[in-house]
Each structure stands twice: as C-alpha cells, then as structure tokens.
Simulated scan of single mutants.
Amino acid sequence: MADSVHSSPYLSWMQIPEQLRAPILVMGFHGWPNAGSVSSDTLYYLTQALRPRLAARLDEETFTNYTSDRPIAQIEDGIIHELDASVSELTYWENSGGEHDLLLFLGKEPSFRWNVYATIFVDVIHRLRVRKVFTIGGVQDTVSHTSSALITVVGSSNSVLDEMTQLGYGVRPSEYYGPVSIHSHLVKTFSEVGIDATSLWGHVPAYLEKSPRVVARIIGILNRLVGLRCSTEVLDQKSQELDRKINEALAKDPNLKQFVESIGGPKNPRNHVKGNEKIIRLDDFVKRDHSKDPDI
C-alpha cells in the first residue's frame, strides 16, 4: 500500500490498496437513477455492514450543475455551520471469506463531462486491477409493494447477462428505449476497455419513496456474485414494518386501496413511470397520526 498521497485533478488518493484480491467495484449514484433510494440505500447498507476503509475522494464540483443540484447547508442563528462540498468517497473492504475484495463508490450522477467522469474510473479499474463492475440503480415502475422484487439488468456482454439471468433471483434482461443515466455510459465505456460491467436496476412502486424489499434483493444478488455474507435481516424487518403501515393506511382509504390493488395486475404491464407523470405517494399518509382521521 502506498504511503504517500497520490492526486489527480479530480480524484485524491488517501491510500492505494494495491493488495486487493480480484476486486469488484460496486457503484451507486444519487439523483435521477436513484428512484426509491435503491442506489444510495444499497451502498449505505453495504457501508454500514462492512465498514470499509477510505481509499480516495472524488471532487464532484466539475461535474455538478449547481442551478439544479443545490449544495446543502446547515444554518443556525444566522451562521453557516456546514456546507456540502460535493465530495464522494471510494472505499475498500478486504473479504477474508471470499475470492473477491470489494470497492464501493457512492456519488452524485454527474451533470457534465460524462466521458471525463468515466475515464476517472477506467483509471481506477486499471490501477487496482478490478475484475468486474456493478452499478446499482432504481426505477419507478407500475409494480406493487406486495409483489416479489423485480430486478432487471443491463450488461456489457452476453456472457454477463447469462450469468445474471441464471442466478435464480428472477433477474430479467432490461427492455428499454429512452433517456439513459450515467450507469449506461459507464457500462458502455467499461466494455470498450475489456471490463465486465453490469447495471442492476431495482423496480420500485411509484407510490413509495423507499423499498427495503428491493434493496434486500439486490444485496442478496451481490452476496452470490461477490461472495459476501451480508445479512438482509434488518431490511426484511423494515419491509414487514412498511407493509404493516401501508395496510393500515389502505384500510383507512378505500380509493387508495383500489388504486394500489390495481397496480401490477394483468391489465397493467410493467412500464417505467415517466418523470413528468404525477406520482401518488403513500409515504406521507403512512407517517400520519391516523387517530386524528375521521371514521370511514
């Protein structure tokens, strides 16, 4: 491991984990491809479970459009105490129980210079001899919270797709035409330099902001692919609790219940929800104090 700090215009290395064994890179992004917080929640969960070490920080200012993605500040008594500096971290974890060590990255989807952004990670892949890359995304869909979690996949090759669809988790090849995220750009770029890359997409009900069931399914897939033993017990408990709250909410509102039950039925094929469509959300309803609601 290098003791000195290595820097580039965008990526500052704290330490270079040169000893990693056949590492696999898992990437997540805030922003447009993070419906249901699937991408960020998956990376947060892995970080909490594995406690990886810091390898490098990416300064995202060059890639951020501050007119649409404003920095977050904490102001108390007129004084600014914290200001989001738009810095994301690349971490690493040595997997003593498996053949592959792990690299984790969670950042904001870049607004500009996708080619430059992709090149940064091509360099990381070559420097650390990364074997495979997985990007994690979330998409709003006409699926129900009671349905088995749907995961679709975009891959850099037919062999990658075959590996994914044979896992036994109901993973399906993606069928899509429309605007794409940084995930697709990265997969295409990595494939051009001979790196196996896979983009896993969790489909979440359009009426929910969180889906621990979908995150648990993705963690289960990564367990198989990477050789992890990351328990999903906490996510399973959260799923059950969310289901309970949703059922209580639906019992209070027959119209809402009819809407939710109509989703994912035979007359409702799974289609991506367009960004300009109005989304009915249960989250605020679930959090309400229903003791103050009038009797139905």
Score class of each variant (00 low, 15 high):
residue 1 M to A: 13
residue 12 S to P: 01
residue 21 R to P: 05
residue 22 A to D: 14
residue 25 L to W: 04
residue 30 H to V: 09
residue 32 W to H: 05
residue 32 W to T: 05
residue 33 P to V: 00
residue 34 N to I: 05
residue 35 A to I: 04
residue 35 A to P: 02
residue 36 G to D: 00
residue 36 G to I: 00
residue 37 S to V: 06
residue 49 A to C: 12
residue 49 A to V: 09
residue 54 L to T: 14
residue 54 L to Y: 13
residue 57 R to I: 15
residue 62 T to H: 14
residue 73 A to W: 07
residue 74 Q to Y: 10
residue 75 I to K: 06
residue 78 G to K: 08
residue 79 I to W: 08
residue 79 I to A: 09
residue 96 S to G: 13
residue 97 G to K: 12
residue 99 E to S: 13
residue 100 H to S: 07
residue 102 L to Q: 05
residue 102 L to A: 04
residue 106 L to V: 05
residue 108 K to N: 10
residue 109 E to I: 05
residue 118 A to D: 02
residue 120 I to E: 04
residue 121 F to A: 04
residue 123 D to A: 12
residue 124 V to S: 03
residue 124 V to K: 01
residue 124 V to R: 00
residue 127 R to F: 05
residue 132 K to M: 13
residue 140 Q to E: 11
residue 149 A to G: 09
residue 150 L to W: 02
residue 153 V to Q: 03
residue 157 S to H: 06
residue 159 S to E: 15
residue 159 S to C: 12
residue 160 V to T: 13
residue 161 L to E: 07
residue 167 L to K: 09
residue 168 G to Y: 06
residue 172 R to V: 09
residue 175 E to L: 11
residue 178 G to C: 06
residue 182 I to W: 00
residue 185 H to A: 14
residue 185 H to S: 13
residue 188 K to N: 13
residue 188 K to R: 15
residue 191 S to L: 06
residue 191 S to I: 05
residue 194 G to L: 09
residue 196 D to G: 09
residue 198 T to V: 15
residue 201 W to G: 00
residue 203 H to P: 00
residue 207 Y to R: 02
residue 208 L to M: 11
residue 210 K to P: 03
residue 210 K to D: 10
residue 213 R to I: 10
residue 214 V to K: 01
residue 215 V to W: 01
residue 216 A to K: 01
residue 218 I to S: 02
residue 222 L to V: 02
residue 225 L to R: 12
residue 230 C to I: 12
residue 230 C to W: 04
residue 232 T to R: 02
residue 233 E to S: 11
residue 245 K to F: 08
residue 246 I to E: 03
residue 250 L to K: 02
residue 255 N to A: 14
residue 256 L to E: 05
residue 256 L to V: 05
residue 258 Q to I: 09
residue 263 I to T: 04
residue 266 P to T: 07
residue 277 E to F: 07
residue 278 K to M: 14
residue 282 L to F: 02
residue 283 D to S: 04
residue 289 D to Y: 05
residue 291 S to P: 02
